[in-house]
């Protein structure tokens, strides 16, 4: 017995899907609305200085978010990025203190990030450990290594030629903002347009189907963790350069901030969705909320609450939208 399906229903759900598909557009609207409100409430909000301060505050996590977005589109997940940021920043700083020239010292730090990603990727793709457990364990392992090698002491007194990487500016725009924008733009184009990165949407959408379509699922999974590890290491170096010191508490909670940004930006934990620009807008939205609370003189302790509520609201909107689509 065959059943005919009603085409009208599909058309209707398509209309609904269109709205939710413009996730970036929606966040942008929220950001613009918040900005208009804030520019009225506080004359300081739309000043060049405040805008740059906001962008600078998201620059480190934006670089990590590029990798995390690719990872989460493919259905992966990395809790260890915060520790990677801190460890690689410290490794680079220690190498410089030990007399290694700036550039080779940075390469060593980047190599550490790549190795961390490789181990994550192998454990997940080849051994078959769940990504959450793998990277949760790795998060703790890396923080432990960091504490052991630094003996929990911050490392300062770094060469000026290194610090300029994080502290310099071009026409008044701090370098970290420029790095972040470059990574975001390149990352977004690649994830949208390049066939190689596009494979992640297949893997996240239907793993089995991806394999049947000739996609090397394990290989790409490993690549994604390596990419994320590499970007986290790079972010760690930039952060260290900007602060002029490697801190053992650097990057604490960064993983949750980045994952929240990626999810607010339209990705889901099950994969198949998300864009780099969306993730950036998610991060920016959280930064603007924090900034707004400060400018409005709200008790800073509300900050975490508001950010958590934003995340829950964004996901609830998704789930309700998703349910509607399923029923229609």
């Amino acid at each position: 017995m065959r059943t005919a399906t009603v085409n009208g229903e599909a058309a209707r759900s398509r209309g609904l899907a269109r709205i939710t598909d413009f996730r970036e557009f929606m966040i942008l609207m929220v950001i613009i609305a918040a900005s208009i409100f804030m520019s009225i409430a506080s004359p300081y909000f739309l000043t060049r200085m405040n805008i740059l301060a906001n962008l600078l505050s998201v620059s480190i996590e934006s670089i990590v978010a590029v990798g995390m977005t690719v990872l989460m589109v493919s259905g992966g997940f990395d809790m260890s990025v915060g520790s990677t940021v801190a460890l690689c920043g410290a490794v680079g700083a220690m190498a410089m203190k030990a007399g290694v020239p700036v550039f080779p010292a940075m390469l060593i730090a980047l190599a550490v990030g790549i190795v961390v990603g490789l181990i994550n990727g192998l454990l997940i793709a080849k051994v078959g450990i769940n990504p959450f457990i793998t990277t949760l364990g790795m998060m703790s392992v890396l923080r432990g290594i960091l504490l052991v090698i630094t003996q929990a002491r911050n490392i300062s007194g770094l060469p000026a030629s290194f610090k300029i990487i994080g502290q310099g500016n071009f026409l008044g725009v701090q370098y970290p903002i420029i790095y972040a924008l470059v990574f975001l733009i390149v990352g977004d184009i690649l994830l949208r347009k390049s066939r190689f990165f596009r494979q992640n949407y297949y893997i996240g959408g239907n793993r089995q189907a991806a394999r049947l379509s000739g996609i090397n699922v394990d290989g790409i999974t490993i690549f994604n963790y390596v990419l994320t590890g590499f970007l986290a290491a790079l972010a760690g170096l930039i952060m260290t350069a900007r602060l002029g010191a490697a801190s053992v508490t650097a990057g604490t909670g960064l993983e949750l901030k980045v994952i929240s940004a990626v999810i607010i930006g339209g990705a889901s934990l099950s994969g198949g969705e998300g864009t780099v620009i969306g993730s950036f807008l998610g991060a920016l939205l959280m930064a603007i909320i924090t900034n707004a609370l400060t400018l409005l003189g709200v008790d800073v302790y509300w900050n975490e609450f508001v950010i958590g509520a934003t995340l829950l609201l964004a996901v609830a909107v998704d789930v309700i939208g998703g349910k509607r689509r399923k029923k229609a």
């Binding site: 066939r195 596009r198 494979q199 949407y201 297949y202 996240g204 959408g205 239907n206 189907a209 991806a210 379509s213 000739g214 996609i215 198949g272 969705e273």
Partner: peptide, 13 residues
């Protein structure tokens, strides 16, 4: 892959 377009599914990879 339900999250992708008809075109990207037909010419997957």
């Amino acid at each position: 892959a339900p999250n992708l377009s008809v075109a990207e599914n037909i010419f997957a990879n």
